[in-house]
Structure formats: structure tokens, C-alpha cells
Design a protein around this nucleic acid. Structure first.
Lengths: 254, 254
DNA sequence: CGGCTCTTTGAATCACATCAAGGCCCGTGG
DNA sequence: CCACGGGCCTTGATGTGATTCAAAGAGCCG
């Protein structure tokens, strides 16, 4: 989409303008990292960059045959499972540089549905090819194990949050998590736009939308936040951290 | 233990009676499975079988340097994280044939503590060696990816349980989970002993011990369960399944 | 403008937590 | 053998944070 200008050139060099793993500015967040350039090229060769998906479009559905995992390049994705009575349990929000779909590996069937919260670009990484490549590139294998393990520790942090923390603490922890993930991408840690609705927040944190709304209202009244619909400004970072006394340490891949 | 009779033989073949991966009766539950015998031997060579650990002893602590994952051979283990205010969040109970410790891979530091609920035997599997071996044996790599993925889906089921289900539903789901894991090991699905205390159950399900106790009492009054301290008999399996309407499908590795 | 969906706010209710007491089991020691 | 103490579990009375129900405001689009 943002490469259309170059089509004027008649040389067969439109390839130069394509995104690839080595020029991707997220490549230290996503899979590569500490790979030699020939290894990055090998990885690049298996990664498929499809056209952007629009808000409310699906990347995969629960029950679909599992073939690939996905890396978010831009935008944001929510993953959720549907309970038998039709309610959504959001299992994660995924931002650029983050990987999703690893819950499909165990049964070769996706265990959750992934839906775009806004127009987003993703890299599709066929899992079989990734496995083969991992066997040849020890660093890649290790890194992928680490990414799966990170998903596990993050799920366990969410378990603790749901099990032990009040509504205020849960909301504070989520805001801080989004903030720190923004910072990791060199974006503002204090001002950002929430891509998800209040319903999604509720379905992630195990709260109703009314409670979400009330907590946010409360935090505004205390001048900790300033919220205008989806736009959030964190006015008092320390106070927010204090409320979310739960440590939301954001581990980096080694 | 059940091989002692054979010691009468005077041939220098006491090795034959040592536990190893190929004669382990759990080997379809744990790592191997569909490996050729030379591959099982290679795996066997890196697995360390230490002496049994006793009730309340630790396998590893949160914060310890991560070196190995562990497979339970007998007994049972609980894994938990400690919140900053000192409370325990139990993240899982592990029975024979199940693997734990994978949350330590991402940062090379254990993210949880593992403690024996009763006298237990475990296999220690050094992770570096497992990685190297995985690179050589595609089936092993795939199987290990699947095991990690299973941990993710199970954590996500717990997230849903905590977020969406009542105390009664949570307890019913846990009992059914233990029941089906017993069945997988050819044990009774209807009568078993809970190795964990009410406190542990509460810390796993996000409930207080009083609530756990009340729910169990209620289920007894309805003649769905018969409970004598830690001994549980499921009298009405269908009713229990009905209460835990959450599907606790127990996926098997393909 | 009207008709959506999403969000906010208030009042009533409920499920679970908290507080408090008592029971049971088991080991230890007189 | 019984008495005592300490875990662990159960049961009841009371409190409370979050849900539920209800209604109205705010943003968005045809």
C-alpha cells in the first residue's frame, strides 16, 4: 500500500522496496535477533507477508486447522476463546513485534480466534518450515522456545491477576502492560490510544464493562489518568504502579 | 520396586532393572512417543533420575537459574508463584507423565516454585541437551513444541475458568480434570485421593478455603460427591460434568 | 436528523470474602 | 492410656466488591 509510488519505475527492481526480515524495524522484538544475515535470509524466505487485514477481520478461528503462527507488524490483534455459552474470554492482546497462534501447536488446531482490533499487518510463519529451520539454526530454536515460554509466563501472570487482584489492580496492571509494550517500540509510555473496546478489556480482565468504566472513572477522579474515550494519558505513573502493586515486570528476550 | 524379585539372577545384568525411558510405563504420556528405539536411547542418556523427593521438599524455586525441565514419574507436584504480598498463586498441579518447569525457559530463571505434595519421583531433563537432541530428532522437537503449547492452552483454560466461572463450576472442573488425568494413567476416574490441601485448591482456583469447603459440602449434600477428607468418590459423573459446563476436554498429543 | 453502538452513572442484589468458633485427626509426651 | 497442642477442615454470621438491572448520555454514520 505504501509502496505504490514506486510502481512508476520500469526496472524490475520493485523487490527492493518489499518488507523483509532484515529491514524490519521490529526484528529484535520478533523472531530473528542475534541471527547471522544468511540465517535471517533463510527465515525471511519462509515468512509470508500477506495484505493488511482490516478491523474486525479474522486471522484464524478456534477449531481451524493450525498451519502457521503470526507476528504482528502493525496494528493490534485480540485472541479469544469462546465459552460454550457463547461468551468471549480474551486471552491476549498482541501488538507489533509480538507473536500469536502458538496455542494451536499442541493439537494442530487453533485453540483460539484471532481478530484485528484495527487495520493490521501480520507476517505468517508456516510452522512446519519454522520447525525445519529451527533444527538447522540452534539460535532460532532456542529463541522460539523462549517465545513460547514467555507466552506461558504471561498467561500465568494473568492467572494471578485474575485470581488475586481487585478490579482497580487489574485495570492498572493492564494499562501499565500496554504502556511498557509501547515504550519497547519507542512510543510514548504515557499517552496512547487503546485499540480495544471496554467490552474487550472486561473480557480480558474478567470484569463487566460497567466495572471497567467505573474503575477508569475513579482513576480519573484521582488525577492518575486522563481518559477521553480510547485516548489515555497516564498523569501519575507512580500512583498507577502503586495500585497495580502486582509486578508487571516486562522481561526481554536474552 | 516391583522388580526386586529378579535380583535372584546372578548375571551382571542389574542394569536391566533400572528405570529408563524405554521401559517407563509413562513413556507415551511424557516426552518420547513415536520415537524409534535408538532415539529413545539417546533421550534416555540425557535424562537424570534422581532419588525421590519427599513431601514439602522443593524441586526448584522461583528465581533459581533454569537448567532443566522435569517429568513427574510418581507422586505429585504443585507449582506456584508468590505474589509480592506473600500469597501463593498455584499455577498447576502435576501428576505422573506430566512435565513442568517450562516457564523458566524464557528468561533462564524459574518463574515459579515447585514443591512435592507427597513423596514423588521425577526425571530431570537438562534443557540444553534436550535442545541439541531436538535439533537432530524432528519428532522429538515437534513433540516438545506440542507439550509447551499444551501448557499454554491449559493455562488459557484456567484463565477462562477464573474469569468466567462460579466457585461451584471451578471446583467441578478441577475434580473432572484430576479424574480424567487419573483415567489416562489407567487409574480410577471415580475414586481417588486428592494430594493437595484445601488451601492449595483455593490458591489454584482463586477461592478461599471456606468457599472450597462449602462447595464440596454442597456437592456432597446433592449426592454428587462423597468426600472423606482427601478421599473423593464421584457418585454422579454426569451431574458433575453438567455443573462444570466448561468443557475440560483432555486433548491427547497426536 | 434519526438510529446505531459504545460508554457512563446510579441503585439494588448477590456471590464470595471475612471474621469467628468449633470439630476432627494425629502425633507427642506425661 | 489419656491429655494436650497444632494442623487442617467445616460451619455459621456478617460484610463488601463486583454484578446486574436500568436508564440516559456521547460519539458515529447513513
Amino acid at each position: 500500500m505504501d509502496t505504490k509510488i514506486h510502481l512508476a519505475s520500469d526496472a524490475p527492481c520493485h523487490h527492493d522496496f518489499k518488507t523483509n526480515c532484515s529491514n524490519c524495524r521490529l526484528n529484535t522484538l520478533c523472531l530473528p535477533l542475534s541471527l547471522e544475515s544468511k540465517d535471517i535470509d533463510a527465515l525471511d524466505a519462509i515468512v509470508q507477508r500477506s495484505k493488511p487485514i482490516h478491523k474486525n477481520e479474522y486471522l484464524f478461528h478456534e477449531g481451524d486447522v493450525f498451519n502457521s503462527i503470526y507476528a504482528v507488524r502493525s496494528g493490534s490483534i485480540k485472541a479469544f476463546a469462546t465459552t460454550d455459552d457463547g461468551r468471549e474470554q480474551v486471552t491476549g492482546f498482541y501488538f507489533p513485534g509480538e507473536l500469536l497462534g502458538m496455542d494451536g501447536i499442541s493439537r494442530n488446531i487453533h485453540a483460539s480466534t484471532a481478530k484485528a482490533l484495527e487495520t493490521s499487518a501480520v507476517c505468517e510463519i508456516p510452522f512446519d518450515s519454522l520447525g525445519e529451520l529451527s533444527a538447522k539454526i540452534p539460535n532460532l530454536q532456542r529463541h522460539f522456545f523462549q517465545l513460547m515460554s514467555r507466552e506461558i509466563t504471561e498467561d500465568q501472570q494473568l492467572i494471578t491477576l485474575l485470581s488475586k487482584n481487585s478490579a482497580d489492580e487489574r485495570i492498572a496492571a493492564l494499562l501499565l502492560s500496554i504502556s511498557s509494550r509501547n515504550a519497547r517500540r519507542q512510543l510514548s509510555a504515557n499517552r496512547f490510544r487503546l485499540p480495544m473496546s471496554r467490552v474487550d478489556i472486561g473480557n480480558y480482565l474478567g470484569l463487566t464493562i460497567e466495572t471497567v468504566s467505573r474503575v477508569i472513572g475513579r482513576l480519573q477522579k484521582k488525577s492518575i489518568l486522563q481518559v477521553d474515550n480510547k485516548e489515555v494519558a497516564i498523569l501519575d505513573f507512580d500512583a498507577l504502579t502503586e495500585i497495580a502493586h502486582t509486578k508487571v515486570s516486562h522481561q526481554e528476550a536474552s
